[in-house]
Design a protein around this nucleic acid. Structure first.
Lengths: 200, 200
DNA sequence: CTAGCTTTGTGAAGTATTTCACAAGCGCCC
DNA sequence: GGGCGCTTGTGAAATACTTCACAAAGCTAG
């Protein structure tokens, strides 16, 4: 989140940003900002603040964003199609290199710029590439099977949109986005007057 | 998350579940399960575990899911269209009652079952309904404007898919899903061998 | 070069969350 | 009905996270 705002400040031409300023942007406290950043190093200048451009570069390095990441989308249903054409990924430097499905009615069909390929090909395609993140957008029932398969194909990071809790070996990173669960969280907040100021 | 697994156990006919069992399903610890549930009441029976069916009902009540929630999707772009037709919402009992956009080329166009209506109508439509959650699926630039507008229209809960940090008054609940940020989290995990076992 | 204003980096203090560990309750069997 | 095995609910201990507060710098101006 810091990176996002720093990039904004950078393009707007601002040279330095204080922890106060970053805190306000990120809805947190100056002390929090300083502790967070100090975990990775000592980037600021006392009396001045943090050098926006340099800190941006440092954070990109820390996050591993210097490397070019590629994405394969698994599942060419509604969500998969939307993600395949979602500009946000490209804008943040993630390149969608393929969309896969195992339904014959979808294979070969082209969606936007991407052509849907057979799941069976995913293995080979992924082994050829390095630095691939898989985005799972398939029905819950198949989720674990497909995940096991792409893990076997050598994928080390998965972003899961299937509303199912999938399990991966400890050397694989997994993040899940469960939209219905988010809605249920909002339902709870409303019902109990919590006014959940949810994370980014 | 407990609710999700309890429903599964319930349909599979299991009558009781111990904290050990729930912990394993949810990738947490038995003590955590017991503390979490005890916050809301004393649902279990010592020596036996938790009554699956009853606890399911309790959790649904706690989460406010007895009420029927309605959803309006704001933005008929790729993400909006996908969400409008996403079955997961319906499956979890959320009813999509409208899709809105302000681009004339999209208004009137029907997407799946929903017809895209003019944003200008949203005010009136929402005031007529109670228990509406807005799902924001528009470009970042407009996000804050649109959010201000629907808040003014009386919406009290927002699920934001725009990759922008929006601000809402304290009596409004907001959750944001930022897909690019999730990917960057995975990038960090991979680059630093963290093997992030991300939340649901 | 010093005084004064600003802002970082960081131990220490203060909160919050998680885990431990065990008494108390429940069901079952004899 | 009493003993036994199991599992909850919960204070207390342990751990994690956030905030405080202040010394150590840097910048500016005179």
């Amino acid at each position: 989140m810091y990176l996002r705002y720093l990039e904004e400040l950078d393009t707007s031409g601002q040279n330095t940003a204080s922890s106060d300023e970053l805190a306000e942007l990120c809805h947190t406290t100056p002390a929090q900002v300083r502790k967070d950043l100090s975990f990775f190093g000592s980037f600021g200048k006392r009396g001045l603040g943090y050098p926006v451009h340099e800190l941006t570069a440092h954070l990109r390095e820390i996050l591993g964003l210097e490397r070019e990441w590629k994405i394969v989308i698994v599942g060419a249903g509604k969500i998969g199609a939307a993600l395949a054409n979602y500009d946000g990924f490209r804008q943040r430097g993630f390149q969608v290199i393929g969309v896969y499905d195992n339904s014959p009615s979808k294979i070969g069909h082209s969606w936007g710029e991407a052509v849907v390929r057979d799941m069976a090909q995913l293995d080979a395609d992924v082994r050829a590439e390095d630095s691939v993140i898989a985005v799972i957008a398939i029905p819950s029932d198949d989720a674990q099977n497909v995940v096991d398969r792409i893990v076997a194909a050598g994928i080390r990071a998965i972003l899961n949109f299937a509303p199912a809790q999938v399990t991966v070996p400890p050397n694989v990173s997994l993040k899940s986005v469960n939209m219905a669960m988010e809605l249920e969280g909002l339902s709870f907040a409303l019902t109990n007057n919590f006014s959940d100021r949810g994370a980014a």
